[in-house]
Computed example of a mutant assay.
Amino acid sequence: MFIFPMLLETAAAPFSDSRYIYEPKIDGHRLIYVQTGGKVCLYTRHNNECTRQYPEIADALFPHDITLDGEIACVDPQTGAINFESVMSRFQAKRADKVRRLTDELPVTYVIFDILRYKGEDLRNRPLMERKEILAGLTMPDAHFGVTPYIEGAGEALFAQMQARAMEGIVAKRKDSVYETGRRSAQWQKIINWTYADVYLSGYKKAEFGWLASVPTDNGRMRPAGIIEFGVSPTHKQAFFGVSKALITGEDRDFVYVEPRIRARVKIRNWTRAGMLRSPVFTEFIV
Protein backbone atom coordinates (compact mmCIF):
# COMPACT_ATOMS: atom_id res chain seq x y z
CA MET A 1 0.00 0.00 0.00
CA PHE A 2 1.31 3.42 -0.99
CA ILE A 3 2.31 5.87 1.77
CA PHE A 4 2.48 9.57 0.98
CA PRO A 5 6.03 10.62 1.88
CA MET A 6 7.15 13.06 4.55
CA LEU A 7 8.21 16.33 2.91
CA LEU A 8 10.93 18.83 3.74
CA GLU A 9 10.90 22.47 4.70
CA THR A 10 13.64 24.76 3.41
CA ALA A 11 16.32 26.09 5.74
CA ALA A 12 17.75 29.53 5.02
CA ALA A 13 21.36 28.39 5.45
CA PRO A 14 23.40 25.36 6.52
CA PHE A 15 23.63 24.81 10.27
CA SER A 16 25.21 22.38 12.73
CA ASP A 17 23.26 20.89 15.62
CA SER A 18 23.91 17.73 17.65
CA ARG A 19 20.17 16.96 17.63
CA TYR A 20 20.29 16.41 13.86
CA ILE A 21 21.79 14.05 11.35
CA TYR A 22 22.82 15.34 7.93
CA GLU A 23 22.55 13.51 4.61
CA PRO A 24 23.72 14.46 1.12
CA LYS A 25 20.72 15.46 -1.00
CA ILE A 26 20.50 13.11 -3.96
CA ASP A 27 19.58 14.78 -7.26
CA GLY A 28 16.99 12.29 -8.45
CA HIS A 29 13.30 11.77 -7.82
CA ARG A 30 11.50 10.47 -4.74
CA LEU A 31 10.50 6.81 -4.84
CA ILE A 32 8.37 4.77 -2.48
CA TYR A 33 9.18 1.04 -2.78
CA VAL A 34 6.37 -1.28 -1.65
CA GLN A 35 6.90 -5.05 -1.53
CA THR A 36 3.85 -7.11 -0.55
CA GLY A 37 3.50 -10.87 -0.96
CA GLY A 38 6.48 -11.10 -3.28
CA LYS A 39 5.23 -8.32 -5.59
CA VAL A 40 6.89 -4.93 -5.90
CA CYS A 41 5.17 -1.63 -6.77
CA LEU A 42 7.07 1.62 -7.19
CA TYR A 43 5.51 5.06 -6.73
CA THR A 44 6.51 8.71 -7.08
CA ARG A 45 5.82 11.10 -4.21
CA HIS A 46 2.49 11.99 -5.88
CA ASN A 47 1.26 8.35 -5.95
CA ASN A 48 2.00 7.84 -9.64
CA GLU A 49 3.04 4.24 -10.21
CA CYS A 50 6.33 3.90 -12.08
CA THR A 51 7.08 0.19 -11.61
CA ARG A 52 7.61 -0.57 -15.31
CA GLN A 53 10.14 2.26 -15.75
CA TYR A 54 12.64 0.68 -13.36
CA PRO A 55 12.77 -3.10 -13.88
CA GLU A 56 16.19 -3.38 -12.18
CA ILE A 57 14.51 -2.12 -8.98
CA ALA A 58 11.09 -3.74 -9.36
CA ASP A 59 12.51 -7.21 -10.09
CA ALA A 60 14.64 -7.32 -6.93
CA LEU A 61 13.11 -8.71 -3.75
CA PHE A 62 13.79 -8.52 -0.03
CA PRO A 63 13.14 -11.63 2.13
CA HIS A 64 10.12 -9.96 3.79
CA ASP A 65 7.37 -7.46 2.99
CA ILE A 66 8.76 -3.97 3.25
CA THR A 67 8.04 -0.30 2.44
CA LEU A 68 11.00 2.01 1.80
CA ASP A 69 11.52 5.68 1.06
CA GLY A 70 14.40 7.01 -1.02
CA GLU A 71 15.56 8.53 -4.29
CA ILE A 72 16.09 7.10 -7.74
CA ALA A 73 19.51 8.26 -8.94
CA CYS A 74 21.36 7.88 -12.22
CA VAL A 75 25.10 8.31 -12.66
CA ASP A 76 26.35 9.91 -15.86
CA PRO A 77 28.60 7.25 -17.45
CA GLN A 78 30.94 9.93 -18.84
CA THR A 79 31.40 12.12 -15.76
CA GLY A 80 30.52 9.79 -12.89
CA ALA A 81 28.25 12.50 -11.44
CA ILE A 82 24.62 12.00 -10.46
CA ASN A 83 22.56 13.36 -13.33
CA PHE A 84 18.94 14.46 -12.93
CA GLU A 85 18.24 14.59 -16.68
CA SER A 86 19.22 10.94 -17.04
CA VAL A 87 16.73 10.03 -14.31
CA MET A 88 14.04 11.96 -16.18
CA SER A 89 14.89 10.07 -19.37
CA ARG A 90 14.28 6.83 -17.47
CA PHE A 91 11.10 8.10 -15.82
CA GLN A 92 9.56 9.32 -19.08
CA ALA A 93 10.23 6.07 -20.97
CA LYS A 94 7.03 4.04 -21.25
CA ARG A 95 7.49 1.68 -24.21
CA ALA A 96 8.93 -1.71 -23.22
CA ASP A 97 11.67 -1.63 -25.88
CA LYS A 98 12.85 1.84 -24.81
CA VAL A 99 12.78 0.85 -21.13
CA ARG A 100 14.95 -2.19 -21.90
CA ARG A 101 17.43 -0.12 -23.89
CA LEU A 102 17.70 2.61 -21.25
CA THR A 103 18.05 0.04 -18.47
CA ASP A 104 21.30 -1.00 -20.16
CA GLU A 105 22.44 2.50 -21.13
CA LEU A 106 21.38 4.43 -17.99
CA PRO A 107 21.03 2.02 -15.07
CA VAL A 108 19.58 3.50 -11.91
CA THR A 109 20.30 3.09 -8.21
CA TYR A 110 17.67 3.24 -5.49
CA VAL A 111 19.26 5.24 -2.68
CA ILE A 112 17.24 4.46 0.47
CA PHE A 113 17.03 6.80 3.45
CA ASP A 114 14.06 5.46 5.44
CA ILE A 115 12.09 2.32 6.21
CA LEU A 116 8.36 2.72 6.87
CA ARG A 117 7.08 -0.84 7.20
CA TYR A 118 8.85 -4.13 7.80
CA LYS A 119 7.57 -7.67 8.39
CA GLY A 120 4.04 -6.36 8.79
CA GLU A 121 4.95 -3.68 11.36
CA ASP A 122 4.36 0.04 10.81
CA LEU A 123 7.58 1.82 11.83
CA ARG A 124 6.54 5.42 11.17
CA ASN A 125 6.04 6.36 14.83
CA ARG A 126 9.45 5.10 15.86
CA PRO A 127 12.23 7.72 16.18
CA LEU A 128 14.33 8.25 13.08
CA MET A 129 17.48 6.71 14.57
CA GLU A 130 15.62 3.48 15.39
CA ARG A 131 14.40 3.31 11.80
CA LYS A 132 17.95 3.99 10.58
CA GLU A 133 19.23 1.11 12.71
CA ILE A 134 16.69 -1.30 11.20
CA LEU A 135 17.56 -0.06 7.71
CA ALA A 136 21.29 -0.53 8.35
CA GLY A 137 20.66 -4.16 9.29
CA LEU A 138 19.06 -5.05 5.96
CA THR A 139 20.89 -6.93 3.23
CA MET A 140 20.31 -5.16 -0.07
CA PRO A 141 18.98 -7.34 -2.94
CA ASP A 142 21.74 -6.30 -5.38
CA ALA A 143 24.04 -3.47 -6.48
CA HIS A 144 21.11 -1.33 -7.69
CA PHE A 145 20.22 -0.65 -4.04
CA GLY A 146 22.13 1.53 -1.59
CA VAL A 147 21.61 3.37 1.69
CA THR A 148 22.10 7.13 2.06
CA PRO A 149 25.09 7.88 4.31
CA TYR A 150 24.78 10.46 7.09
CA ILE A 151 26.84 12.26 9.70
CA GLU A 152 25.78 13.59 13.09
CA GLY A 153 25.89 17.24 14.03
CA ALA A 154 28.28 18.61 11.38
CA GLY A 155 25.87 20.13 8.86
CA GLU A 156 28.07 23.03 7.77
CA ALA A 157 31.04 20.77 7.07
CA LEU A 158 28.91 18.42 4.96
CA PHE A 159 27.40 21.33 3.06
CA ALA A 160 30.90 22.61 2.25
CA GLN A 161 31.73 19.18 0.81
CA MET A 162 28.57 19.28 -1.33
CA GLN A 163 29.53 22.71 -2.62
CA ALA A 164 33.04 21.50 -3.50
CA ARG A 165 31.56 18.58 -5.44
CA ALA A 166 28.83 20.70 -7.09
CA MET A 167 26.16 18.44 -5.57
CA GLU A 168 22.57 19.46 -4.87
CA GLY A 169 22.84 20.16 -1.14
CA ILE A 170 22.07 18.46 2.17
CA VAL A 171 19.09 17.34 4.26
CA ALA A 172 18.95 17.92 8.02
CA LYS A 173 16.78 15.55 10.08
CA ARG A 174 15.99 15.53 13.78
CA LYS A 175 17.23 12.30 15.34
CA ASP A 176 14.01 11.86 17.29
CA SER A 177 11.65 12.68 14.40
CA VAL A 178 8.76 10.38 13.59
CA TYR A 179 7.68 9.94 9.97
CA GLU A 180 4.96 12.53 9.30
CA THR A 181 3.10 11.07 6.34
CA GLY A 182 2.11 13.39 3.52
CA ARG A 183 3.06 16.71 5.11
CA ARG A 184 5.90 19.18 5.10
CA SER A 185 7.71 19.25 8.44
CA ALA A 186 10.41 21.37 10.06
CA GLN A 187 11.77 18.13 11.54
CA TRP A 188 13.31 17.56 8.08
CA GLN A 189 14.93 20.50 6.30
CA LYS A 190 16.71 20.84 2.99
CA ILE A 191 19.56 23.24 2.27
CA ILE A 192 20.07 23.68 -1.48
CA ASN A 193 23.46 24.40 -3.02
CA TRP A 194 22.21 27.06 -5.42
CA THR A 195 24.13 28.28 -8.46
CA TYR A 196 23.62 31.88 -9.59
CA ALA A 197 23.24 33.20 -13.13
CA ASP A 198 22.67 36.60 -14.75
CA VAL A 199 20.06 36.73 -17.51
CA TYR A 200 18.15 39.18 -19.69
CA LEU A 201 14.35 39.35 -19.48
CA SER A 202 13.04 39.01 -23.03
CA GLY A 203 9.29 38.66 -22.57
CA TYR A 204 6.48 37.40 -20.38
CA LYS A 205 3.56 35.00 -20.35
CA LYS A 206 0.11 36.30 -21.20
CA ALA A 207 -1.80 33.96 -18.89
CA GLU A 208 -0.21 32.91 -15.60
CA PHE A 209 2.89 34.77 -14.44
CA GLY A 210 6.28 34.04 -15.98
CA TRP A 211 9.20 36.05 -17.33
CA LEU A 212 11.12 34.75 -20.35
CA ALA A 213 14.86 34.59 -19.70
CA SER A 214 17.54 34.83 -22.37
CA VAL A 215 21.33 34.73 -22.37
CA PRO A 216 23.84 36.03 -24.92
CA THR A 217 25.55 33.64 -27.31
CA ASP A 218 29.14 33.78 -28.55
CA ASN A 219 28.05 35.69 -31.67
CA GLY A 220 26.33 38.39 -29.63
CA ARG A 221 22.76 37.25 -30.20
CA MET A 222 20.28 36.14 -27.54
CA ARG A 223 18.92 32.65 -27.03
CA PRO A 224 16.08 31.45 -24.79
CA ALA A 225 17.17 30.05 -21.42
CA GLY A 226 13.92 29.32 -19.60
CA ILE A 227 11.02 30.90 -17.73
CA ILE A 228 11.24 32.55 -14.30
CA GLU A 229 8.09 31.92 -12.24
CA PHE A 230 9.25 32.05 -8.62
CA GLY A 231 10.78 34.54 -6.22
CA VAL A 232 9.20 37.63 -7.79
CA SER A 233 7.47 40.02 -5.40
CA PRO A 234 4.53 42.31 -6.37
CA THR A 235 6.96 45.26 -6.26
CA HIS A 236 9.32 43.56 -8.73
CA LYS A 237 6.41 42.71 -11.04
CA GLN A 238 5.21 46.32 -10.97
CA ALA A 239 8.70 47.63 -11.73
CA PHE A 240 9.16 45.23 -14.65
CA PHE A 241 5.82 45.93 -16.29
CA GLY A 242 6.27 49.67 -15.82
CA VAL A 243 9.52 49.59 -17.84
CA SER A 244 8.69 46.79 -20.31
CA LYS A 245 5.72 48.58 -21.90
CA ALA A 246 8.14 50.73 -23.88
CA LEU A 247 10.23 47.70 -24.94
CA ILE A 248 7.57 45.49 -26.56
CA THR A 249 8.66 44.07 -29.93
CA GLY A 250 5.83 41.63 -30.67
CA GLU A 251 3.61 38.87 -29.36
CA ASP A 252 2.03 35.53 -30.16
CA ARG A 253 -0.77 33.49 -28.62
CA ASP A 254 1.10 32.80 -25.38
CA PHE A 255 3.81 35.43 -24.94
CA VAL A 256 4.62 39.13 -25.25
CA TYR A 257 8.21 39.75 -26.35
CA VAL A 258 10.36 42.71 -25.26
CA GLU A 259 13.81 44.02 -26.06
CA PRO A 260 16.26 42.23 -23.74
CA ARG A 261 17.43 45.27 -21.80
CA ILE A 262 16.30 44.41 -18.27
CA ARG A 263 18.80 42.19 -16.46
CA ALA A 264 18.12 39.91 -13.53
CA ARG A 265 20.01 37.54 -11.27
CA VAL A 266 18.47 34.13 -10.61
CA LYS A 267 19.42 31.18 -8.46
CA ILE A 268 19.18 27.78 -10.13
CA ARG A 269 19.78 24.11 -9.37
CA ASN A 270 22.11 23.92 -12.38
CA TRP A 271 22.27 24.40 -16.15
CA THR A 272 20.73 21.58 -18.18
CA ARG A 273 22.66 19.89 -20.97
CA ALA A 274 20.53 21.90 -23.42
CA GLY A 275 21.75 25.13 -21.83
CA MET A 276 18.54 25.93 -19.96
CA LEU A 277 18.09 27.22 -16.42
CA ARG A 278 16.88 24.47 -14.08
CA SER A 279 14.32 25.66 -11.51
CA PRO A 280 15.18 29.40 -11.76
CA VAL A 281 14.21 31.65 -8.82
CA PHE A 282 14.45 35.43 -9.17
CA THR A 283 16.70 37.15 -6.64
CA GLU A 284 17.21 40.73 -7.88
CA PHE A 285 17.38 43.11 -10.80
CA ILE A 286 20.86 44.05 -12.02
CA VAL A 287 21.41 47.72 -12.74
Rank of each mutant, 00 (worst) to 15 (best):
R101N: 05
D104Y: 10
G37I: 02
Y110W: 03
N193F: 11
V87A: 00
T44V: 03
T79Y: 06
H64C: 11
F241T: 11
S233P: 13
A11W: 09
V171N: 01
Y150C: 02
T79A: 04
A12S: 14
L158I: 06
R101V: 05
V178I: 13
R19C: 10
S86Q: 14
Q163P: 01
D65A: 09
R223N: 02
A166K: 12
F2C: 04
A154Q: 11
V232M: 12
I248H: 06
C50V: 15
E229D: 04
Q238E: 14
E180K: 13
V75K: 07
Y179K: 08
R273S: 15
E156L: 00
F230M: 12
G155Y: 01
K94L: 10
A239R: 15
R100M: 12
V108K: 05
V34D: 08
F230H: 13
I192L: 09
M129C: 02
R165K: 11
V215N: 09
H29L: 10
Y257D: 12
A186Q: 12
G182A: 10
R124P: 01
T148Q: 06
N193M: 09
M162T: 05
Y110E: 04
I3F: 12
L158S: 01
I227S: 04
E180C: 10
L138K: 06
E259F: 14
F113S: 01
K175S: 04
M276R: 13
E85L: 11
T109P: 02
R265A: 05
D198T: 14
R265E: 15
K39I: 11
Q35D: 05
C50W: 10
E284T: 07
R253P: 05
M140V: 13
N125Y: 04
E49G: 05
K205S: 14
T36S: 13
A239P: 07
G242V: 10
F240W: 12
R90I: 08
G210A: 09
C41F: 03
C74P: 02
M276S: 13
R263D: 02
G38Q: 01
F2A: 04
G153V: 06
N83F: 08
E71L: 08
L116D: 03
T217K: 13
G120P: 07
P77Y: 02
I3K: 05
I151V: 14
E229W: 03
K132T: 06
A12F: 09
Q78P: 00
R126P: 03
E23I: 11
R174P: 00
Y179E: 05
Q78I: 10
P14K: 08
S233N: 08
L8Q: 05
K173R: 10
G70Q: 11
K173M: 05
R126W: 09
A136S: 15
K39N: 04
E85S: 12
H144K: 10
E130M: 05
R174S: 07
A13I: 09
E208Q: 13
I112M: 08
E85C: 06
L31N: 12
T272A: 06
I66F: 10
A13K: 15
K94E: 07
Q92C: 00
D76G: 03
D114I: 00
K206L: 08
Y118C: 03
D254A: 14
A81R: 14
R223Y: 03
V287R: 12
T44C: 01
V147A: 07
F255L: 12
E133H: 00
